[in-house]
Nucleic acid binder design. Sequence first.
DNA 1: CGAAAAATTGAACCATATCAACTTTTGTGG
DNA 2: CCACAAAAGTTGATATGGTTCAATTTTTCG
Lengths: 248, 248
Amino acid sequence: MTPSESHTPQEMMIRKLESIFALTSEEEQALISLPIQIKFLETNRNIVTVGDQPSHCCLIVEGFTCVHKLSVEGKRQIIAFHVPGDIPDLQSLHLQVLDINISSITRCKLGFIKHTDLHQLCEQHPRLTPALWRETLVHASIFREWLLNNGQRSAYSRVAHLICEFMLRLKAVGLVDDTTFTMPVTQAELADATGITPVHANRVLQALRSDGLISTSRQQITIPDWHEIQLAGEFDPLYLHLKEEAIT
Amino acid sequence: MTPSESHTPQEMMIRKLESIFALTSEEEQALISLPIQIKFLETNRNIVTVGDQPSHCCLIVEGFTCVHKLSVEGKRQIIAFHVPGDIPDLQSLHLQVLDINISSITRCKLGFIKHTDLHQLCEQHPRLTPALWRETLVHASIFREWLLNNGQRSAYSRVAHLICEFMLRLKAVGLVDDTTFTMPVTQAELADATGITPVHANRVLQALRSDGLISTSRQQITIPDWHEIQLAGEFDPLYLHLKEEAIT
DNA sequence: CGAAAAATTGAACCATATCAACTTTTGTGG
DNA sequence: CCACAAAAGTTGATATGGTTCAATTTTTCG
C-alpha cells in the first residue's frame, strides 16, 4: 500500500463524495461519526455474490475491487472497477437481492457500513440522501459509457478509454502522483472489462506503449501526454459528473 | 396506438412503480394528482440531448424511446429502450448535466413532470424517495446486464436476450397479450443496441425465426416457447428486480 | 400511388479469437 | 534471502464470427 493511503474509512468516503457533491461541515461531521467495521481481504476473494441479500454496504478504503457477472458458459464480464472511496454495492440499500458479484482484485481494506446506520444518517441529514443517490447515478452513468466503449470502439480505444477513466477517478480521491498512478489490473481482467481476449489485451497494451501513450512499470502507469490518450480513447469526462476542480 | 393504452400518464407511472415497489393507496393518490404536461412526438425525434440541463423529467405514456450515445466516429450505441411507464431521464433529478441522448423510436405520448414537483412529492411522501431511487437503480442494473450481454454473448444470444427483456418489461405494465407483444424496433436499432451491424441483425433474426424461437408479423413478436428463448438468450430476470407476480 | 425507409441477399474481407507453447514476474514457505 | 511454484505476460500461427459494401426487394406511410 502506498503511504498516501493512510486515511480513515470515513475520510476516504468524504473525499469521494466531495468529488461529486458539496458537503457541509455538519454533514462531514456526521459522516465522520458513522460506524464502520473494518475487514482485510486477500486478492481475488468474493466480497458478495449474486443472490446475496446484504445488510451492510461495503466501502473500499484501500485496494481495488471489481464488479462482475458470469455468462452461462462461464465467461466473465467485468462491469466496473472500484477504487478507494467507492461503495460498490450502495445499490443494495434499495435493491434487496444482489444481481452482481463483487471481488477484490488486490489486497483490500474494506469498511462495512450497516444499512440501518446509513438510513438513519440520511434521515438526520436529509441532504445526504441526494448525495448518495447521486453517487449511484454516477455509477450508472459509468455503465452507460462502458456500453458505448465496448459496443462501438476498437479494442485499442477501449483500453485507452479505460485508462483515462482510471486516472480521473483516482485523481478525484488524491491517488494520482502528477502523471503516474497505480492500476493493479491484470491483462486478463482488462480483457474481461473490455470484452476482448487476454491475448489481444496484451497486444493492445504493447501498441499503446510503442505509440507512446502510456509507459508502465509494474502496475504503475504513466501518461506522458494526457491530451493524446484522451484523443485515442475518445475520452470525455462529462459522464463522470465530477465537480469542476476534480477534472483538470 | 393499441386500445390498451388509453390510460392517464399518472396511471402508467403508478403501474410501472407498482411492478418494482409496493405503493400505499395514499401514495397512489399523491401520484394521481401530480401535475404532468402532455406532449406528442413523431418518430425519430430527440427529446433531450447530451449537455442539456433539464428542469423536467420525461414520462413515456405511449410509444417507445431509446437512450443512446454517439462515438466520435459517429457510431451510435443504444444504451436502453424505454417503454410506457418508464422515466428515462429520472437521473436528471440529481445529475444536472445530461450525458445521454433520448429519442423517440415511435410516435410517442410523453408526460413532462417538473423536478420541483417531484422533489415536493418526495418530501410530502417520504417513501416515494426510495421508490424513485429504486427505479433508477433498476435501470442501472439493466445497463449492467447489457454489458454482460454485449460483451460475452454471441450475437444470436444477445438478440434473444433483448427480446426476453422486452417481453417482461412490457408485461409488467400490461402490454403483453398472452405470448405476443409489440416491439417497434428496427433492425438498425436492434443492431445499435446489441453492438452488431444491421446486416448481421437481419441474419440473426432470420435464424431465430427458422429455429422457431420467435415469429414476427409487422412489429408484433410472438414467443411460442418462453423456456426455449430464455435458454437461447441466457435470460434470468433477476436483474429486472420485478416483484414476484410480474415475472411469471 | 409513389417515394422513402426498412429489410434482405451475396461475396469478399478483417479485427479479433483461439490454441499452444514459452518466458517473466510475483509471492510464499522454508 | 533463496527456491520454486503459481500467476501473469508474451509470442506465433491459424481460424472465424461478424463486418463491409453494394445491390435488390419489400414494407410503410403520406
